[in-house]
Design a protein around this nucleic acid. Structure first.
Lengths: 364, 364
DNA sequence: GACCACAGGGACTTAAAATGTCCCAGTTAT
DNA sequence: ATAACTGGGACATTTTAAGTCCCTGTGGTC
């Protein structure tokens, strides 16, 4: 392991590690925003144009990024370096340690963290997607079937996924929800299938139904077939939502929402609402993957980030049989009880869940 | 392995890696010359006082060196770092690769290199001694008996050896040779024994004898006993000399020296003269370890450095059953046929220190 | 086809850091 | 005592980094 070398360098050339982190950060940020110009990148990285220029010139000389009229982009060599360096940077930043702690705390097989806070910086969500995509790609085997839910985070995974001709089948884990086409499970499944050179199935159904509609729909042969396939997926990739915002997005009546809040619902996943202890307080009548199916699935990958989702993530990790969690540092800090937070609308002292107070740092 | 990390850093922060080498070099040089002042060190390192001061201030802040009125010295922590970093610096400098190549070329089990040229810089000999001492220390087991030859290089090993209460017996591998007490095998054996908390035996005999004197001496009970012990040593540490300079030091008649030269003698070890192919062209009538005894010895360690000895070292490595060779980079380059005369980053030594006649290394 | 926003690169001034140089007071070995 | 060291302070000078603005070109959009 190269940990000893890092320790030695920390002692002998501490600025080496700083410089390394700095350049990694520039290259990584460029990777997430490319193509972009020098000024835009400088602004995003909170540095000046001139100072960034020095870094860019260097990285260009090293062949790690290339400059074109449309802007700069990371070269193949740069991407390789970025990938190879990811683990080391995580180690230096102490993320690796937090991953271990969080995995232990939540009882998960694996936790993967990215730096930052998805709430504060939209790029963190992109990084989350990229990390999850690499992780997913690493666990894929030919002939696999993968079920995915919807949401912006899961969409980011499909977006970041590198093209590869793997013969996999991608399935939507749930039906249609809300209006935005972009973030539907169906859409994401098709996108992901395109990236992975695989096939996909659609689940032509709304997520939430009345009983009779549900009954008739589930008896539809095509829907039935798709559902069958979903339940036998080897891998599930899903997002985690906050209970109340999710309920509102679903256009659930105010009275019901109030009831959910009273029951202490803070998290949503697969149509189930969980309280802070991971107990199910409500189960919607959804079409798609059921909680009972989940336990038979080999790899359940949860992906979600942003400090405001910390409690929700913690709850779902307890209540669902999740194997791998991909999230961000802000979430890890919140769950682990690190008080180094700074952003908005947090830190209510009331330990008991209030009606609309959806955020209390869950010290566990 | 930390090799990948080094490769990445070479790409991303090459200048800082140089900084690491630079600081290592300062600390290492200080280690070899301590206690010494800022100015003296700067002169030896071919840099200016001010520039060295910056390095020293840093190293002092890091607790790697300490400053006293007599000068600076490396702290315990600094020594540890120096030791831990040695392999990595060897890797960066490409010495590790040369070690592999040289071991293969000469058919040795192990080769250990130090940077520089012992001919050009007297400190390289000290480094050679330190490296050999660490290596020897690593292979010592309680109860071992070690035979050592004479010479400045082997003396440097005893000098650098860290004190340790190992119960070993140290023996002189050969008799007295020349006048300088400091570099006799007997002297070195006693020194080394003192460092290793062991016992030693003396071989009260000149290295070279007439036949009748040899006969009578070898029958002396005490000499016989010592010789017996020498032959059953587990480890032998010996130097390598150039044939002609060695013959002169032995005051061999000019005619014989001419004859040796005609026979192509270029190397000397244990009283044997070798040509460039490792063939024995002459065997002196010596008291001490014989070549025939060598093959029964478990660990034969040859230590010698300096570009002018390259051929001699190569010859002895072929002609003697050597297991481990400790030498310097200049020798490795010469043997491997690297014709790069590097006066670049290497310190072009300040040989102002004097023109001592003993400067020709008396390698055996 | 023209416009506009953003692209990279050049040029220049200014600020800051690194370096060269000398001096000083103290300690040590002779 | 003296000579040869030591480390630390001080300061002018050089070198480097950084801030700022401008110019020209390209690509997408109206």
């Amino acid at each position: 392991m190269s940990k000893e070398l890092l320790a030695l360098q920390m002692k002998l050339v501490p600025d080496l590690l700083d410089g390394m982190k700095k350049r990694y950060r520039v290259l990584h940020h460029l990777f997430l925003t490319q193509p972009i110009g020098r000024r835009g990148l400088a602004m995003q990285l909170q540095t000046t144009e001139r100072i960034l220029r020095a870094e860019v010139d260097f990285l260009k000389d090293q062949g790690l990024l290339a400059v074109e009229t449309v802007g700069m982009h990371v070269t193949e060599e740069g991407k390789k370096l970025l990938h190879d360096l990811a683990d080391i940077i995580r180690e230096i930043d102490g993320l690796a340690e937090k991953e271990r702690l969080l995995a232990e705390r939540l009882g998960l097989a694996e936790v993967r963290l990215v730096a930052g806070d998805a709430d504060a910086d939209p790029l963190v969500k992109k990084a989350l997607g990229h990390t999850a995509a690499e992780l997913l790609r690493g666990m894929l085997r030919p002939g696999d079937s993968i079920a995915v839910t919807g949401g912006t985070t899961i969409a980011a995974i499909a977006e970041s996924m590198q093209k590869a001709p793997l013969g996999v089948e991608v399935l939507p884990a749930r039906g249609g929800l809300g209006e935005n086409m972009e973030f539907q499970a169906n859409t994401i499944a098709s996108r992901l299938a395109a990236k992975l050179g695989g096939t996909y199935r659609m689940l032509h159904a709304p997520d939430l139904l009345s009983d009779e509609a549900h009954h008739s729909l589930v008896n539809d042969p095509q829907v039935l077939d798709t559902l069958e396939r979903i339940r036998s997926a080897r891998i599930v990739v899903h997002g985690i939502g906050q209970a109340i915002p999710m309920a509102k997005r679903r256009r659930i009546p105010e009275s019901r929402i109030g009831h959910l809040a009273e029951q202490g619902a803070i998290a949503e996943a697969f149509g189930y609402y969980f309280d802070r202890d991971g107990q199910i307080v409500h189960a919607m009548n959804t079409v798609g993957l059921k909680l009972a199916d989940l336990s038979r699935i080999e790899q359940v990958v949860a992906v979600a980030g942003g400090a405001t989702k910390a409690e929700a993530i913690s709850a779902v990790a307890s209540g669902c049989p999740v194997h791998v969690l991909v999230t961000d540092e802000a979430v890890a800090d919140a769950i682990l009880g690190n008080r180094q937070r700074e952003t908005e609308t947090r830190q209510s002292e009331t330990e008991i869940s209030g009606e609309n107070k959806e955020e209390t740092v869950h010290g566990n």
